[in-house]
């Protein structure tokens, strides 16, 4: 034993031998299952959407303030940075929405069996991509096309 932490990892087998308890490998060596990715993305998109509420507040407050303030928001939203932020917001919303539906289904006891976990999670990712593309294609055809 060279480290104090080792003391916590010592156990006795049934025949009384001292052994080291097995340790989980560091997360860095796992092949990421898609459910691990979606779990982290659910939290990340939740944080992103919370930040995005600032945009909603700005948009509403500017609309209430008058045409000049509203034009300022519109100018930002149509700038390259604004479009990037809006695109990220759309994708985050679709992911968090679909992933949230998946969580609600789990809470009701559906879809938590191993065979359905991965397909459903891939469907959430696919639905996010599809929804984001549909919304932006609609927006593009309305504004640019």
């Amino acid at each position: 034993m060279t480290d104090l932490r080792d003391a916590l990892h010592v156990a006795k087998t049934t025949d009384g031998r001292l052994v080291r308890r097995p340790l989980s490998p560091h997360i860095g060596i796992y092949r990421w299952p898609v459910t691990m990715l979606s779990s982290i993305l659910n939290r990340a998109t939740g944080i992103a959407l919370t930040a995005g509420t600032l945009l909603l507040v700005w948009w509403l407050v500017a609309a209430a303030a008058g045409p000049a303030a509203f034009a300022g928001v519109q100018a930002f939203l149509m700038s390259p940075l604004g479009l990037l932020v809006l695109f990220g917001w759309t994708a985050s919303l679709f992911f968090h929405f679909l992933s949230g539906l998946r969580h609600l289904a789990w809470d009701l006891g559906y879809g938590f069996a191993k065979p359905s976990l991965n397909p459903v999670t891939w469907a959430v990712l696919g639905g996010t991509a599809l929804g984001t593309v549909v919304v932006w294609a609609t927006a593009y055809s309305k504004l640019g096309g």
């Binding site: 609309a63 008058g66 045409p67 509203f70 034009a71 919303l93 929405f97 949230g100 539906l101 919304v135 609609t138 927006a139 309305k142 504004l143």
Partner: peptide, 20 residues
């Protein structure tokens, strides 16, 4: 938020390019 977000996205699309 399920129905509210769907309504909001559809509304935003209808408000595209809207003025104040």
């Amino acid at each position: 938020l399920v129905p509210l977000s769907v309504w909001f996205i559809v509304s935003l699309l209808s408000l595209l390019g809207a003025e104040q």
